[in-house]
C-alpha cells in the first residue's frame, strides 16, 4: 500500500509547484545587478549632444534611472506616471534613451512631457547591455553610493510606485 501511494504523492508535489507557478511570470528575469554598483557610463545628453552625462554625476543622491525609447509602446503607458512623479519632486529621474533616434526621442518628450532631469543617449545599446536591459521600459532605483537597490522590469505603474519604489526611495534617502 505504501509503495503504491508513491506516484500519488509525487504527483501532488508537482501539482503544488504548478499551482504556485500559475502566479509566477516565467519571463521576468530578476537582475543580478541589484545590490551591486551601477555600471559606469558617460554618454552624450539628449538635449545637447556635446555635453556628457555620467553616473558619477549623481553620486550622493538617490535617483531613478529609467530606460525608455520612442519606439517602445509600453513606455507610453508609464510616461504619465513618471511625469507626475517628477512634478512631485520626490526623487530625480534620469533617462536612458535606448537604441533610438534623437529626433524621435526629442519629439516624444515634447509631446508627452519631459519627466527627466537629463537623458543619456545610448544609441547602440552598449550601456543597455551593461545594465542587463532586455525589455524596455526598465527602471532602476540607485542609492547615494551608486548601488542599484531595485529594478523594475516593464512599465512603472502607480501601484508599483506606491508600494515598492517610493517606500524604498524614502528609506534610501534617510540613510
Amino acid at each position: 500500500m505504501k509503495r503504491a501511494l508513491l506516484p500519488l504523492i509525487i504527483f501532488l508535489v508537482v501539482v503544488g509547484f504548478l499551482f504556485v507557478g500559475l502566479n509566477l511570470d516565467p519571463r521576468e528575469v530578476p537582475s543580478p545587478l541589484v545590490g551591486k554598483p551601477a555600471p559606469a557610463f558617460s554618454l552624450p545628453r539628449l538635449d545637447n549632444a556635446d555635453k556628457i552625462i555620467s553616473n558619477k554625476d549623481m553620486l550622493g543622491k538617490v535617483w531613478l534611472f529609467n530606460v525608455w525609447a520612442s519606439w517602445c509602446g509600453a513606455c507610453r503607458d508609464e510616461h504619465h506616471v513618471l511625469v507626475a512623479l517628477s512634478k512631485s519632486g520626490v526623487v530625480p529621474i534620469y533617462g536612458l534613451d535606448y537604441k533610438d533616434t534623437r529626433l524621435d526621442a526629442l519629439q516624444w518628450l515634447a509631446e508627452g512631457g519631459n519627466p527627466y532631469v537629463a537623458t543619456a543617449v545610448d544609441e547602440n545599446g552598449r550601456v543597455g547591455i551593461d545594465y542587463g536591459v532586455y525589455g524596455v521600459p526598465e527602471t532602476y532605483v540607485i542609492d547615494k553610493a551608486g548601488v542599484i537597490a531595485y529594478k523594475q522590469i516593464g512599465p512603472v505603474t502607480e501601484a508599483v510606485l506606491r508600494d515598492k519604489i517610493l517606500p524604498l526611495v524614502k528609506r534610501l534617502q534617510i540613510q
Binding site: 503504491a4 506516484p7 504527483f11
Partner: peptide, 12 residues
Amino acid sequence: GGSLLLFAWRAP
C-alpha cells in the same frame, strides 16, 4: 489524482 488514488488502493 483520482486515478493514482485508485491505483494506490487497488494495485496491492
